[in-house]
Design a protein around this nucleic acid. Structure first.
Length: 575
RNA sequence: GUCUUCGUAGUUCAACGGAUAGAACGCCACCCUUCUAAGGUGGAUAUGCAGGUUCGAUUCCUGCCGAGGACACCA
């Protein structure tokens, strides 16, 4: 990669001057070149010399390779590197040769990574928050794959625990009230059934807090669930099956396919056993009838792993999950993606795991992403103030359909719905991914879901526009040795941006930030739009210009496609 | 109270310790007999407060103010 080569050259040039590793950055201003280095400023500081002089000295020792047009010293002592147009043209040619794999690397080749994400609980609603986790997890998976890693996607769902007891309690009450059986319920659509479960959960949940009798009933239901009591097994099995089926329809819609599914019930025994073993070794302690991990010894918090009824909590189950995953896939790295509300206890969990299973602990990482909050506050399926996933996606799709219908050049009616679905998902995914992972997202249906400007549809539109031109003019191929001169600024900017893609993809994977791909793709689309407005492709000044612009258009479309693919956003030939 | 994350235009977000703090939405004015106007061009507005480190701080350190999260049997 260009960045590495330049860094190498720079390191050679500063030998004998300093051993500081020179860092290259991408300047925001085009006038500052394609890369710049502040190494002279760093050296000047150490040696109390004049930074400009140092920069000059480094420059004089630098072997100037052919891919550089020029290197400049700028105040107060920056070294600015400008790529040659010959190099940029070659890079454009590479885009067209490598196509979908342009920008991919073998950086993580041989690495086995398992990512756990989405983690919805059966019986509870699948809401916008789950969509967010899913989209982040899927995008990170793709980023790692693009760097050559072997990635497995895992889904972990809570099929046992208090939330299930609360839901079943609510289901029983509602079925009595409405005088319906499981059989009757099964006649309803999957989405309605899921909703019935979600509402039952919300009711059970508030009853648990407000009503002492209900609280006792729910607690006893919980014990029955763990004991696999026959009395409730029908309701339980049905509800669980419906939920999981329902989730599957959403994964399909969102574009994720999981390699592994793990249920809490599947790992709870193993988790409990690990904790009890740990208790013997003195890693855990008994306290008030429960088994706790004394996190305060490690600067963390004390947490309950087995409650006083002898049931494993989420913490214990998660401990059981780690070896289970490793059994299925001998990973080098296991990444668990959840909302950042659990970041604190993941630290405790990792500390406990480090004592029980050091080798697994050092391979385990947690990424806490921000929470999706509504302008009215935090979403809570207990309180029922949530945005349900399918309803939400449908609403966005409706908005898009309206726009498509009122367009000046409406698409033919058949296939229009398909296009609307792709645009709606593009809008949703982009709006969630463009923010740095870890920050909360204030979600306002009206405001934050834009279809214009810095948005998914803007990128899809830029792509469709390129394809429209290419359909009319035919795709171009780069002829060996062909060189173009007298390029306009808009053309040069585009070339320079295109060549940055491989580095952006790598950096996004390293920093685990899909948002870097978003801003890159937006810049590219914006530059193409500006170019499109300023210059005509088909009506170019000369045949040569026309060819060049067709090449530029082909390459732009390709890089947009590759970027969007990393974000899990579908491209459209027309829209 | 302890720990933790964060505070940037009216709003939603950017900016390895770097150069004139970037965008988008919204607002105003222009640009379609010309390759898709979901587009383009131009315009106003911002680093919570007080110190410190540094040639240089939105970024690092300290204090204050404000917001979110975690802090025992929910996940």
């Amino acid at each position: 990669m260009m960045q590495d080569e330049l860094e190498k050259l720079l390191r050679e040039a500063i030998q004998g001057i300093t051993d500081v590793r020179p860092l290259l950055e991408r300047p925001q201003e085009e006038g500052h070149g394609d890369y710049s280095s502040n190494i002279a400023l760093v050296v000047a500081k150490q040696t109390k010399r004049n930074p400009r002089e140092v920069a000059q000295e480094i420059l004089s020792k630098l072997q100037k390779p052919s891919f550089l047009e020029k290197v400049e010293v700028a105040d107060p002592g920056f070294l600015n590197f400008f790529l040659s147009s010959k190099y940029l043209l070659k890079e454009m040619d590479r885009v067209m040769k490598e196509k979908d794999s342009y920008g991919a690397s073998a950086e993580l080749k041989g690495q086995k990574i398992i990512l756990e994400f989405t983690d919805p609980n059966p019986f509870k609603e699948f809401h916008v928050g789950h969509i967010y986790t899913n989209i982040v997890g899927e995008s990170l998976s793709k980023l790692f794959e693009f760097q050559g890693a072997t990635v497995k996607r895992a889904n972990y769902y809570g099929d046992v625990g208090m939330h299930v007891a609360k839901a079943i309690w609510g289901m029983q009450k509602n079925m009595q009230k409405e005088k319906i059986s499981l059989q009757d319920l099964s006649q309803r659509s999957l989405r309605e059934r899921a909703r019935f479960l979600g509402e039952s959960y919300a009711q059970g949940s508030s009853a648990f807090e407000e009503d002492e009798t209900a609280k006792k009933e729910i607690a006893s239901l919980n014990a029955k669930i763990f004991a696999k009591d026959k009395e409730i097994s029908d309701v339980y099995e049905q509800g669980k099956t419906w939920s999981l089926e329902y989730f599957e329809t959403l994964y399909k819609r969102l574009g994720t396919a999981f390699d592994f599914y793990y249920a809490e019930s599947q790992v709870s025994e193993q988790g409990k056993k690990l904790v009890l073993d740990g208790l013997k070794k003195g890693i855990f302690e008994e306290s008030e009838g429960a088994v706790v991990f004394p996190g305060e010894k490690y600067g963390l918090h004390k947490r309950v792993f087995i409650n006083s009824q002898g049931l494993p909590t989420y913490e214990a189950k998660e401990l059981g999950l780690a070896p289970k995953k490793y059994e299925d896939f001998k990973y080098d790295k296991s990444i668990i993606i959840t909302g950042n509300e659990v970041t604190e206890y993941f630290k405790v969990l990792k500390a406990a795991l480090a004592l029980l299973h050091p080798s697994l602990a050092e391979k385990t990482f947690h990424i806490g992403h921000g929470m999706v909050v509504l302008p009215s506050g935090k979403m809570s399926s207990r309180k029922g103030n949530i945005i349900r996933a399918p309803e939400f996606l449908d609403e966005v799709k409706e908005k898009v359909l309206l726009m498509l219908e009122s367009s000046e050049h409406p698409l033919p009616a058949e296939g229009r719905e398909e296009v609307a679905e792709a645009i709606a998902l593009g809008a949703v995914k982009y709006s969630l991914l463009k923010v740095g992972v870890g920050k909360d997202i204030v979600f306002d249906m009206e405001k934050s879901l834009s279809l214009a400007g810095d948005s998914g549809p803007y990128l899809q539109y830029a792509y469709a526009r390129c394809k429209s031109i290419l359909r009319k003019a035919g795709e171009a191929t780069y002829k060996k040795g062909q060189s173009f001169t007298d390029l306009f600024p808009e053309e040069v900017s585009l070339l320079r941006t295109l060549s940055r893609f491989p580095e952006v993809a790598r950096e996004a994977a390293e920093k685990q930030l899909p948002s870097l791909v978003c801003s890159f793709a937006f810049t590219l689309a914006k530059q193409y739009s500006a170019f499109y407005d300023a210059h005509s492709v088909m009506g170019a000044e000369s045949q040569e210009k026309k060819e060049f612009r067709l090449l530029l258009t082909t390459a732009t479309a390709q890089v947009l496609k590759n970027s969007l693919s990393l974000l899990g956003i579908r491209i459209l030939e027309r829209m």
